[in-house]
Each structure stands twice: as structure tokens, then as C-alpha cells.
Design a protein around this nucleic acid. Structure first.
Lengths: 223, 223
DNA sequence: TACCAACAAAATGTATCCATTATGGTTTTA
DNA sequence: TAAAACCATAATGGATACATTTTGTTGGTA
């Protein structure tokens, strides 16, 4: 018997729209018409409507009370606050992790950071998440880890192309190295401080860039 | 023209099921059949399916890959971790709030705690949330505030009847009073410590109760 | 008794149809 | 000219019908 190629329509539609929002194919504010999507995927509107509800729950789509759905926008303020939340939780996870880290955890982190040093630009975001994930695994806090994963995936991923052009790669790599060293030396306080700086520094820089870009876009739009 | 009495079916069905899950009318693990719900609310299955998707996004309902939907269960471990997360975020919010608090904020908090002292048991949970909300408002972190609200509503609310019978009310009230005093004295460190204890102490107690209750239930179920 | 196959009943997944509501453009009017 | 009213178009919300999948039961066999 051949494998099960046909997936439920809701699932494949949801996944595809999600991917298109995350990679920027469907940009901020874009209207998502049920009929258009339905004809695009050659399905009826029923699964499309459910898919939009699911994506609305993930805050990737906004459904107004008129029923119209659009891709949500990212404000610099909410971006900054998400970074703050990220920093808060990640620092706590790191603090819990360090005392429980083994040499193999350290080695794994170093290995990922080496991959980061020579990876293609598109590979950065998932690998970078992996790096952080490895550091927090010993803490054994699946829920917090999940919140972090969500923040990365639902939020950072959408800024991917943006981050690509504004990231200070050598600096990030240096900071990763420093972070690993401090973990190895069981310097909890130092490691936590380094991590918080690592996250918030790039956050402020990105938020500034976001602000000026959105300003520019609004100006060109009003021409 | 008379007011708009008819709401969209998806919304009213979602709200009603959510309320029934939160107040225990629909208990943990209960199967939620689309046809049953549809006939209960006198609507077709279409809005019911969307409602279930929404509630699944809120983690109140689980939809297995067979399509069957059930009310999610609360494990003591995930409960404890949610409390940890709550404590982490609330402590940060309090830390940010205290320097920005005015006398009217303190007064408001005292007022709510006075209401708590003489309120009916069912009023405790929302009033208690309000008390905490007032304390964190000056921090001006809408996203974090929202995460906290979610944790309270989606999680604590479901334990309402349980909390009712196991809460140490006088102790909570005393701790609230102490918390307010420390805020008024701008004792950030002391207030944060008091808050963390306040949250985690009751968390551990409740988790223990939860564990033994679920154990008891499993034993009676296997008779 | 235990196990398996086949079938029946019930539940979910999707498509289509109709009703209602929102949107955009045109015409009318002040 | 500007604003309001109106109408045609298009989109969404919900109901129904049908297809598919899951589940439970029955009956037969080792």
C-alpha cells in the first residue's frame, strides 16, 4: 500500500498560509479572502475558515468583526516587549540550567555555534534557536521552553529577512562564545547578564530599524 | 430600532463552552461531540467546529488526529510550572511598577483587598486577579499583563471549586496587606520576595492537593 | 475464552447552497 | 463641490447534504 499522501485540507492549508506569513510572502496587513484562498488550494471555504481561526489563535491573522481576515502587523513596541519577555524567561531558564549542565551539553552548544559560524544566512534563525534551546534543556521546563519557542517562531521568524540585513553576525557569535565559557565556568550571574544583554541589545537595535522602516513605508505610501 | 440581540453563532457557542469548561460543567477529559453541541445550541456543525478550533488554540480543548475533541486535563507538573512562570513575570512586573506607583494606586490596592476580606467565595478569583492587576498596571507592559491574565483565566479559573475548598484565605489576605505595605515603603526587594512566596507557597500546596485528588479519582475509577 | 474479520452505526471532513452583511461606486441633493 | 442615499457586487456566516473515517458490535473460528 502506498503511503498516506492526502492530508486533511485544514492542516495543509493552515501550514501553508502560516509558512507564507512567516516568510513574508503574505506581508503585514494583507487581506486574506476566504474565496481566494479556497480557489488557490482547490478546496471549499469550510476548511479555509477553520484554518483562519487557527492562525488567528496564533496571532498571525486578525479577524475583524466584519469577518474579514488580514495578516497581523508587528509594532515596534510589542516587538520590544516580546524581547523583554523572552529575556526574562530565557535568563530564568539559563539560571536553572547551568548547575545541571554536563560536559556534553557544553560540547553540543559549541558545536552548534561552530555551525553558525559557517552557515548560510537562511539557516541562521533556526540554528540560532537550536543553540538557545540546547542551553535551556537541562532546566527541564517544557512549558517555558514552549513559550520561548513560540516567541521565536511566531515573531522572530517574521522578521527574518529584516534580521538578515541588520544583524551583527560576528558580534552575536562572539557573545555566544562568551556565554558558553561562562556556563562552563558555572558563572551563573555572569552568564545570565551576558544573555540578557545579548537579547536586549539586538532587540533595541532591531526595534529602531523597524520604527524607521515603518516610518519610511508610511511616507512612501502617502505620496 | 431595537438593539442587536443576535450575536454570531461561533462567538456565543465559543463563549458558552469556554464558560462551561472553566466552571467545571464540562469536566476534564469529557468528550465534546460536534453533533451534540450543535443540537444543544440549535445551530449547525459549521460554527461548532470553528468554536472548537478556537478553544483548542486556548488549550481548553484538545482535538486528536481522529478529529475527536475533548476537554484538556491539568497535570500537577504543568500546573506548577505555570505558577513558576506566573511568579517570574509577576515579580518582574511588580519590580517595574513600584517606582512608578502613586498614592492612588496604593489606595486602590488596599480598597480591593478590603473587598476581598468580606467578599463571597465565588467572587474571590476575579477580585484576586484584579488586586494583582492593579499592582502591575504602572509597569505598562500590556503583553506581559496579558500573559498573566491568560494564565489566571485559562488555568486558575478551572481550579476554582478546588481552590475554594483548599485556600487559606486569612493567610492570603495577610500576605496581600504585607505586599501593599512594602510597595508603599518602596521596598522593591522585599515586595518581590513576598510576592514570589505568596504565589509559590499556594502553588505547592495546591499541586499536592491536585496530585492526591487525581490519585484518588484514578483509584475509584479502577474499582 | 481469546482473537480476528466483517459489518453496522456514528462521528467527522468537505462541498455546495442560500441568507445576510459589508463594500464600492454611482447618483442625487443640498 | 461635497456629502448623503442607494444600489449592485462581492464576501462572509450558517445550514444541509454527501463522502470518508472511526468505532463498536457481532459472529465465527482456533
Amino acid at each position: 500500500m502506498s503511503e498516506n499522501n492526502k492530508q486533511k485540507a485544514v492542516l495543509s492549508v493552515t501550514e501553508d498560509i502560516r509558512a507564507k506569513i512567516l516568510d513574508g510572502t503574505y506581508p503585514e496587513g494583507m487581506a486574506l479572502s476566504q474565496v481566494d484562498i479556497a480557489s488557490t488550494y482547490q478546496v471549499s471555504r469550510t476548511p479555509v475558515r477553520e484554518a483562519l481561526q487557527i492562525l488567528a489563535g496564533e496571532e498571525l491573522v486578525e479577524i475583524r468583526d466584519t469577518g474579514r481576515a488580514t495578516v497581523t502587523t508587528i509594532s515596534p513596541e510589542s516587538f520590544l516587549e516580546k524581547c523583554e519577555l523572552r529575556a526574562l524567561i530565557e535568563v530564568k531558564l539559563l539560571e536553572l540550567s547551568i548547575p545541571l549542565m554536563g560536559t556534553e551539553d557544553i560540547a553540543k552548544a559549541r558545536e552548534i555555534n561552530e555551525s553558525l559560524k559557517k552557515c548560510a544566512p537562511e539557516e541562521w534563525t533556526p540554528l540560532n534557536y537550536l543553540f538557545h534551546e540546547v542551553l535551556y534543556k537541562p532546566a527541564n521546563r517544557p512549558l517555558m521552553q514552549n513559550v520561548i519557542k513560540d516567541l521565536h517562531h511566531r515573531h522572530y521568524a517574521r522578521l527574518k529577512s529584516f534580521i538578515l540585513s541588520h544583524r551583527n553576525t560576528p558580534r552575536s557569535l562572539r557573545e555566544h562564545d562568551e556565554l558558553i565559557d561562562r556556563c562552563e565556568r558555572q558563572d551563573i550571574e555572569g552568564a545570565c547578564y551576558a544573555l540578557e544583554s545579548h537579547i536586549m541589545m539586538s532587540a533595541y537595535a532591531l526595534a529602531e530599524q523597524l520604527k524607521s522602516q515603518q516610518l519610511k513605508r508610511r511616507q512612501t505610501a502617502s505620496l
